[in-house]
Amino acid sequence: MLLTEKLKQTGFSPSERAVIDYLFAQRELIEDKTMKQIAEATYTHPSILSRIAHKLDFTGWVELKAGFLEEINYLNRHFSDVDANYPFAPEDGLMAVANKMAALKRMTIEDTLSLLDHEAFEQAVTMLHEARHIKIFSIVHNLLLCHDFKAKMNRIGKHVSLCEVDPEFEAANSDETTCALLISYTGESDTTLRLIPYLKQRHIPVLALTSVGENAISNEADCTLRLTTRERLYSKIGSFTSNDSTQCLLDLLYAGVFSKDYEANLAYKINMSKRLDHRKSSSEIMQEKEHPFT
């Protein structure tokens, strides 16, 4: 759950609510304001600010303020012209729909990249690269998005399984050479959460792709990469941004693993394709040429 959502939902006293309302009114303008200045503006005491922070499990006001500003900064970026839930309107013509959908895809990729932490990404790629077997756990809808990732990884010799049938058995029947990849937009999916005890018991490293903010799955994962978090659960035309963000991260993970042994992976992939891909084309652009790595 996003911090901004917690601030709206958690039970607060009238004095605490006055401070919170001020935060939402001022947003990024609070960056240079001290506790004393905020307390004076809201006719409260600085201790109220500390109390709010502690209620939300922060060590103090400075940490809460930093988290709030970081989240506001994220929510302000991108998506200023297109609504992720309703990217086009009933009166839009077909080309207007097409252009708005293309703009949404561009913004989703930019947004996903802005959330990518270098250290977490490096850790995630290392986890997948070192794993003998990668098992992906998620709801069926997300697993459909993973077939292309599985195919690409298989073509460079990485064993990937999409655990749709009997995921509890797949989790329990794994060892430390397996990496579990959990995908959940909400981070609260019971279907996925109930697998974590099995994975932890078997000492299996867990990589999560999930939404921005604190959630149950990110709290349990060894490494977390964040998905674009702009959509409601069901009040929307389609899961455009969450799907595109998931596919973007999967492509980045594949590219990262590929780059770990670039020449060997490229040679392996091209040689396998030469043997198995029998497509023909009259287009000069599509014609294959000899490659130095093969």
Rank of each mutant, 00 (worst) to 15 (best):
D277V: 13
L252Y: 11
R275I: 00
T246Y: 03
Y262E: 11
F258Q: 04
L266C: 14
D261L: 02
G256L: 07
L266I: 10
F258A: 01
K269M: 15
D261G: 13
G256Y: 02
Y268K: 11
D251R: 03
I270E: 12
A255F: 10
K260S: 09
Y262G: 06
Y254L: 05
L253A: 01
A267Y: 02
K260F: 12
S245K: 05
Y254Q: 08
L253H: 02
R275W: 00
K269S: 15
L276Q: 15
C248S: 06
L253V: 04
L252S: 01
A267E: 02
L252V: 07
H278N: 07
S245H: 04
L250W: 01
S273W: 00
L250F: 09
H278A: 15
L252E: 07
H278V: 13
I270S: 09
N271S: 14
L249A: 08
Q247A: 00
F258N: 07
A267S: 11
N265W: 08
T246M: 13
L266R: 15
K269P: 03
R275H: 08
L276M: 09
L252A: 10
D261I: 02
V257G: 03
L253E: 05
S259P: 12
F258D: 05
K260L: 13
K269C: 14
E263N: 13
Y262V: 09
L252K: 07
M272S: 05
L253P: 06
C248Q: 01
S259D: 15
K269E: 15
S245M: 12
D261C: 07
V257I: 03
K269N: 13
Y268C: 02
Y254K: 04
K260H: 06
S245I: 04
L249Y: 10
N265P: 07
T246F: 03
K274R: 15
L250N: 06
C248I: 12
V257S: 05
L249K: 04
V257H: 05
S259V: 08
L253N: 05
Y262S: 11
I270K: 13
I270P: 07
C248L: 11
K269W: 15
S245F: 05
Q247N: 09
L276W: 07
E263T: 10
Q247W: 03
G256K: 07
F258I: 02
Y262R: 11
F258C: 05
T246G: 04
R275T: 01
D261W: 03
